[in-house]
Design a protein around this nucleic acid. Structure first.
Lengths: 203, 203, 203, 203
DNA sequence: CATGAATGAGTTTTCATTCAT
DNA sequence: TATGAATGAAAACTCATTCAT
């Protein structure tokens, strides 16, 4: 439908772009956005340095693209939750758990987000990352608001609830990564942790 | 008391070092560790660029020093908690709340920690920061372990509990900072959030 | 007449080359030879980047071609002058005036020549441009020599006379362009200027 | 008076700056502004690459500085002319001659100016160079205006007269340089050329 | 023949660190 | 001990040119 007929040239190019994204995510998550050079990324992706800039306008634009991709993936995972009729506590627990699991299964996403938010202020990426994260938080807050209110959490403060859920998941994953902890946390403990927040808010 | 007799020379030098630490913390928290130069820090502290290196071996060592300072401060705040006889749930809640409040009241600490953990792997600082954080987590875990066990959390997994408490506080603060959210969270909501985890774990 | 029978293919190609020359002249004159890229020129001419190199061996060769074209055009304008019997002063004045007018009416020619002569020494173009200009100057000097001698200017120094006439016209045009001056000089002043050199040499 | 006590450090630095200016002028005049790299200039001046940027904010700022220096030198040479009481024709002739000689004796100045004016539009230097040249031309025009009017040249068009005089001198020098002509022009011919414009304008 | 994706040499610029004064 | 001038390694980015399609 949308792609009429990807010529072999275009397909090869697409594959190169995907290789760039994969290797870039891997390297930036592992060594930091500022800790790996474009040359390293292209070398890992098996192409010339100059090719990078035919795909992305700048290194920062590349980082921003990766961040958007990860947030989109997170939204895709979280989106379906709470569509059916569930009680408030269960919804909160499911959302908290989903975030914990997402970042635990995709530690690169956690590392990249943390890297992107640590970018020097003044650059063009940080505002973009912030905007995307804010959008995501609003989405999450909208999902949480009714459940929160049902448990006595003020509706206009749903953003703080969303922030807490995201923080726990993201923070747990990257702190765990950085400290080499929590990688072997048994699933039932993760689950208990995820549910605890919801349960505690529900009295 | 322990300091024998700080000569005027030594005292002047101490003051300079304190100025460096204060301005460095401010700048690194605001603009990122890689986003501010040694020249900027020394200029803000009112001294020559070269003087910096008579106080600290390198820029990274300086960042590590600042991190240690902040972690020491955190330990100082958290240390007294739970010394008296309190029930398990209250201890957990107090600790979670203490972390939330510490990073909310001292956002520079949160920003610096997040910056330090985002430092390029391979450098000499990251391992050091990790080691200090691990030490801190062990301390916290030791404090938490009995309470956790009382609530059915396996004692040998206390580290994960500590990680969750630290993550919530640190993540909430730096994500909130980055997104300009949670700065005006009413104290009673913060408190509710802090207690929720403990309450939920306690069933 | 001399062209045997331009196949439609050949004709299309010719048109493309002419478009390249026109757009290249425009862009190089406006933004400098080093200030516009091959990609810009081909985009302006409505063709692919690669096509450029099927017409010209290199960007520099292209610039050299444009210069030759402009010098040929100048020679065409100046050539007919002095063929009839005119006195020495009038010939000098006519030639000076012709140069002033040529570059005033075709500022792109002036800009291109100035750009070409500013090309980094060491490249392959500068020698070529120099050679063409020298050829042109010799042609001009040959035309000037008898008139010069009639006014007491040594015949073997006719090149200097030609240099002065060319410099006044070219310099006036490109300095005027660069400074946005002389674009609205009334024709009678231009003419007076053009004649002045001749008149002054004639005592 | 102005320099209270140049410390040996500062003096050494000053000498380095002068070496940079000299070698930069030489290389940029010979090979073009874009034709020589900062690395080449600093190497020629016997210092490290980074030192360049402690003296000048950028390569372009350096080029602008050199241009200003040369124009200031030109103004210094031309300034004293016409202060005494001389007739209009003599003043014009003296000024024309002064420009011819200045650029003939200092061909690097001619080459640098021509290079600077050939800089890609859009950069920060070209506007600066244009502004300085315009200032210089206004100065020259003010000097010329009365004499011009005495010879029937409209006072409000003195700028065009200045442009012609500057063009002849600058154009003659850099075209001569580029074509390796006019380097051995006998002084009396130069002088005759310089006077011719004035004489011709005076009838 | 036309195309545009791929390439890498080459450039400017930053900045932690050294060291002579 | 304090200073700031000097340094060069490292990084992002541009663009003429090549070549497979």
């Amino acid at each position: 439908m949308s792609e009429p007929a990807p010529s072999p040239r275009q397909e090869r190019r697409q594959r190169a772009a995907r290789r760039l994204a994969a290797e870039g995510l891997r390297l930036m998550a592992a060594r930091g956005i500022g800790g790996c050079s474009v040359a390293e990324i292209t070398a890992a992706a098996g192409m010339g340095k100059g090719t990078f800039f035919t795909h992305f306008a700048s290194k920062e634009a590349f980082a921003a693209f990766l961040v958007e991709e990860q947030l989109a993936e997170l939204a895709r995972r979280v989106g379906p939750l709470g569509l059916g009729p569930v009680d408030a506590e269960t919804l909160l627990a499911d959302l908290a758990l989903a975030h914990l699991r997402f970042f635990q299964r995709d530690p690169q996403a956690a590392a990249l987000l943390q890297q992107a938010l640590a970018l020097p202020a003044g650059g063009p990426v940080l505002p973009l990352v912030r905007a995307r994260l804010r959008e995501y938080l609003e989405l999450l807050a909208a999902k949480l608001a009714p459940a929160g209110q049902a448990l006595g959490w003020p509706g206009e403060r749903a953003a703080e609830l969303a922030l807490a859920i995201l923080s726990l998941g993201l923070g747990y994953a990257w702190l765990g990564q950085a400290l080499d902890l929590g990688r072997d946390t048994p699933p039932e403990l993760s689950e208990r942790l995820g549910r605890a927040l919801a349960r505690g808010l529900a009295r």
